[in-house]
């Protein structure tokens, strides 16, 4: 069989890089989108493991050849998990937004406190 299509490989690469880029943003909404994209990337790379991915699994095509069903099963499970967690993440992001009217990740309070320890004590 042919190797996985070039387009699939490029898609996975774009999804990973875009996902990590979004993950590093300050807005929680973008972080959630980043996680979503990364989830898709991981699922698609699961599908990339099979060379005959264009064929149907289990039942086979006209020639009786079939693709490996295991990556499909694993991707399905992973999709279920990502689905559940994403809804939870959305609810959380919403909660954060509800409390603060913005969804930016704030500076860590404790970090700020420790940074203050290193500054000369003229303000206190």
């Amino acid at each position: 069989m042919s190797t996985p299509s070039f387009i699939l490989v490029v898609t996975v690469a774009v999804l990973y890089s875009g996902g990590f880029y979004l993950l590093l943003q300050r807005s929680l909404m973008r972080v959630v989108f980043g996680i979503l994209m990364l989830g898709h990337a991981a699922n698609m790379s699961l599908l990339l493991t099979d060379e005959a991915i264009t064929l149907p699994p289990l039942l086979g095509g006209a020639s009786g050849e079939m693709s490996d069903p295991l990556p499909h099963a694993m991707a399905l499970t992973a999709i279920v998990i990502t689905f559940g967690v994403t809804t939870f993440l959305l609810a959380l992001a919403y909660r954060v937004w509800l409390g603060d009217e913005n969804d930016e990740v704030p500076d860590d309070v404790e970090d700020r406190r420790i940074r203050r320890l290193t500054e000369p004590e003229d303000s206190s």
Partner: peptide, 17 residues
Amino acid sequence: SVVAALGARMEAEEQEA
């Protein structure tokens, strides 16, 4: 439960907030 939590209850909470 997702629909209940993300839909109806959130509307109420948003109003409250």
